[in-house]
Computed example of a mutant assay.
Amino acid sequence: MMQGSEKIVAAETDESNDAQAIPAAPALDETTVSGLVEAALAAVAEAADSASLKQVRIDHTGERSPLALANRAIGGLPGAERKDAGKRIGQARGRVNQALKAREGELGEAELAHRLTEETVDVTLPVSFGPVGAPHPITAMIELMSDTFLSMGWAVAEGPEVETEWMNFDALNLHPDHPARAESDTLFVAPASSHVVLRTQTSPVQIRSLLTRALPVYVVSPGKVFRADEYDATHLPVFHQIEGLVVDEGITLGHLKGAVEQFARALFGEITLRWRPNYFPFTEPSVEVDLECFVCHGESVGNPDRPCRTCSSEGWIEWGGSGVVNPRVLAAAGVDTDRYTGFAFGIGVERALMFRNGVKDMRDMSDGDVRFSRALMGDAR
């Protein structure tokens, strides 16, 4: 245990340590306070970076800074002196804080500019890229075809791929004994008695448009269709069509010819078309559209020395069917056939892509090889 004299010595030592831990408050007269402010402002101005400015802030505005201690000492002054001292100390601390804020902004801008200069990336350096894909040429072709008709003021219509037999056949004037309705040609979702099929054409979209849209109707309907075809170089069981339908007052075969010729020029440039009579249940009269062979341009016809495999030396390539809409089709959709007439056409997207890009095998379009898509995309858009 400590004796009495040891306790006194220990107490004096503790008081000495406290005096060193908390500096004595400076005098509060105007000269002393001005000196503290000038010292703080000088330290702020000399701070070279944000780290040193942080230390200046601690030294001159922290809890143990001279100005903070002076502010604490105000409470011990007589009432007459307390007001003047408080105003003097408050103004001093305000000047120091403003200087700190201004210097902080200056240093921040300088450091940001330095980082932007020093941390630049050389964008000319070689970099490695991953494999680049491409839109499928069929998708690009459908977009091109649709855009062509959109520019003519038409609308793009879509419909379900699973259709009722009435929409796919009956409404289009295909009688129950028509060969196209046999199971050898049509894919039924369930037994034939279900009357539900995978659509064999996009023509049901035209019927839906007549049933749901106000007349006149100008629509084009691209989409996927399904048939029980062989999978070979020129046939696919799943392929794409784009069909157009116009129903308005005074529509004639001449309007059909103008629209299809404009469509052909948008896809193939200046090209000659041939119109041949044909038969389709849903149009009357019906015409088949042929394109002049884009390989031989007809020079192989009757010329055994220059045969053409593309058109079999006939000079023409079958492109699609068209005609004036059969009044029975209009009547099935509730259209007044005494007032309205129309035309329709159908084009195979894969066949158009073959003509436009020289594709020899349709199976290349369904193999999913991105090299095929990249090779054609320069021409397919």
Rank of each mutant, 00 (worst) to 15 (best):
K54Q: 10
V324Y: 05
A99F: 02
G254Y: 06
I207G: 08
K360D: 14
P304S: 03
A40V: 06
G323P: 08
P66H: 01
L330P: 07
V37Y: 03
Q241C: 08
R103T: 07
D338T: 06
A47G: 11
F343L: 05
A180T: 05
T148A: 15
I347G: 04
P327M: 11
L107C: 08
I271C: 09
R88P: 07
L69V: 05
G258E: 14
T212C: 02
T283K: 05
I242A: 07
A332L: 03
A24D: 14
G298V: 01
D248L: 04
N168K: 00
N168L: 03
F129R: 12
V238W: 02
M152T: 03
P277V: 07
R371P: 10
E314G: 15
G86V: 00
L376G: 08
K87Q: 13
P191V: 00
D84P: 08
M377W: 03
R72F: 01
K7R: 15
F226H: 10
H297N: 10
D290F: 02
L198D: 06
M354F: 04
L353K: 01
E106G: 10
L28Y: 03
E46C: 00
D29E: 12
C311Y: 07
E288S: 07
A45Y: 00
E12C: 12
R213L: 13
D248A: 08
G358A: 09
R199T: 01
L353H: 03
G302V: 05
Q262K: 10
V301R: 08
D248R: 02
V225C: 10
D379K: 13
D361F: 01
F345C: 10
A47C: 11
L273Q: 04
E63P: 02
V56A: 02
D290G: 06
A352K: 00
P204M: 02
L256P: 07
P237L: 01
L236C: 04
L69N: 05
C293R: 05
K54N: 14
A233I: 03
N97D: 13
R88G: 05
D379V: 11
A39D: 14
V196K: 02
I142V: 14
G244I: 01
S50V: 04
A99T: 07
L210S: 08
T61H: 01
T202R: 01
I317N: 14
S151E: 15
